[in-house]
């Protein structure tokens, strides 16, 4: 019971958070004409790393070369700046809420090591999926839904539909 008491008022009311997030999406579209995004920054990082380590390889690869510009670093994109903002914003919120702590969050039934392996696997799948669908939950699903994009709705339903289907097999990790 003690834990529940701790958790109860730590976070915002979800509807309040959703309301502000909705306003932020409107603001973003009003200013820039585009939605929010997150995985784009990671794509740019990968492109930048590969371009640094093996420039010729990056140029020959059909996918990297799309994002390599002669006079501009691949990191100089809107989404990278936005991701930096996310990092800072989350840090500010976390420090105000007293939640900053180096830890691995996992169900008491599994070890930290198992959690980390699953996190890595989930990350790989998410990275792969986000490229195939051209966007992640924020870029495709959330921003797509805000402008009633068909692709956004399909992606959203595919993510959450699959989530519910496979949730049973991973229940031990979470509950």
């Amino acid at each position: 019971m003690n834990t529940e008491h701790q958790n109860r008022h730590v976070y915002w009311n979800p509807y309040f958070g959703g309301f502000l997030l909705g306003l932020l999406i409107i603001f973003t579209f009003y200013m820039t004409g585009r939605g929010l995004g997150a995985s784009g920054a990671m794509k740019s990082s990968v492109v930048a790393i590969v371009d640094k380590v093996a420039p010729t390889h990056a140029e020959n690869n059909a996918y990297y070369s799309k994002y390599i510009d002669e006079d501009k670093s691949p990191l100089n994109t809107w989404l990278v700046f936005e991701a930096i903002g996310v990092l800072l914003g989350a840090f500010i919120s976390g420090s105000l809420g007293g939640r900053i702590k180096l830890k691995v969050e996992h169900s008491p039934k599994i070890t930290s090591r198992r959690r980390l392996w699953f996190a890595l696997g989930g990350g790989v799948l998410f990275g792969l999926g986000a490229q195939i669908a051209r966007g992640c939950t924020s870029g495709a699903a959330l921003s797509g839904m805000a402008v009633l994009s068909t692709g956004g709705f399909i992606t959203m339903m595919a993510i959450f539909g699959t989530g519910y289907v496979v949730a049973y097999f991973f229940r031990k990790n979470w509950i």
Partner: peptide, 19 residues
Amino acid sequence: AIIGGIIMGVGFVTGGFCP
């Protein structure tokens, strides 16, 4: 969108995050 979404769905449940 469908295949990417399915892969992301599995990734979401295993990893517990989205980007």
